[in-house]
């Protein structure tokens, strides 16, 4: 018994060591960004290795004082949450229809929806530019919301649909004989039951949206609609050259909101990712 117990303890330590090392490895880029962002510019571009880095808030002051970073951050957050909201409002009923109703061509329609993800975004870049220009939406957050929502809608629909397929049909039959209408069933039975799936889809949509660059650059021409991802590009050119520490700090700031959201809903997310998104998606 004693030897067995000790062995289990050793195993646990080894497990923690391996997992800890892996976590550190995964976090490396983030820590690296933070460390670059908080050092003076000169120190970053020097070819000699530095063993004792100097702490500096140069980049921090620069991005907030010389650039309207608060506005970029606000644009990012508004556009992202707005787009996820649009996705859910449209995607949940669509998914329900595709998961539960019987009609001709249902599975084909589901596939067409997904196929919109398969083309290269650049193909539609020019038409979309004209579309938004004619609608008078260029350089607004509304346009960003719409375009992010459009990009993510297909897979949001698919993930949610795959969760809905996992719900026992009996549950809906019960609600129906209890006297519930279709919308009631969706609202009171289905949505609570697939909440982890909705959260998973939302988080993935958020991550895509915050990283979106091409269309944002196309639509946003002034700080009116610039987001964090486009703001990053501001530091790569111009008379000042590439400002690495500012880039690193902005990238880190773009990472923080998503990170906080994920930490807050981690319990649902981990359940969601294993529960249906991978299996049925």
């Amino acid at each position: 018994m004693a030897s067995q117990r000790r062995k289990r303890g050793e195993n646990l330590i080894i497990r923690y060591l391996i997992l800890g090392a892996w976590a550190l490895f995964c976090l490396m880029p983030v820590l690296w960004f933070l460390s670059i962002g908080l050092r003076p510019r000169v120190e970053i571009i020097t070819p000699q290795p530095i063993y004792w880095p100097t702490f500096s808030l140069d980049a921090w002051h620069m991005i907030w004082e010389d650039w309207p970073m608060a506005k970029y951050l606000r644009n990012s957050i508004l556009a992202i949450f707005g787009s996820v909201l649009i996705d859910l409002v449209l995607g949940i009923p669509a998914a329900y229809s595709l998961a539960r109703y019987q009609y001709r061509g249902r599975d084909d329609i589901a596939f067409y929806i997904l196929s919109t993800r398969m083309m290269a975004p650049a193909i539609v870049a020019i038409p979309i530019f004209f579309l938004f220009r004619n609608a008078g939406l260029l350089d607004t957050i509304w346009a960003l919301m719409l375009i992010y929502a459009a990009i993510n809608l297909s897979f949001v629909t698919w993930i949610i649909r795959s969760y809905m397929l996992d719900i026992p049909k009996e549950l809906e039959d019960a609600a129906r004989t209890d006297g519930a209408s279709d919308l009631r069933i969706l609202w009171e039975i289905i949505i609570p039951a697939i909440l982890p799936g909705i959260i998973t889809a939302s988080v993935i949509a958020m991550i895509f949206a915050i990283n979106e660059f091409l269309f944002t650059l196309l639509i946003a021409s002034t700080p009116n609609a610039y987001t964090m991802s486009v703001a990053l590009a501001n530091f790569t050119g111009g008379s000042d050259g590439v400002i690495y520490n500012a880039i690193a700090l902005v990238a880190f700031l773009a990472f923080v909101p998503v990170f906080l959201v994920v930490v807050a809903i981690q319990k649902h997310l981990s359940r969601g990712l294993t529960m249906g998104a991978v299996k049925g998606g």
Partner: peptide, 12 residues
């Protein structure tokens, strides 16, 4: 009113 084999209670 119907009673189902799998009970079909609303889990939430």
């Amino acid at each position: 009113a119907m009673v189902f084999q799998g009970y079909a209670l609303y889990p939430n």
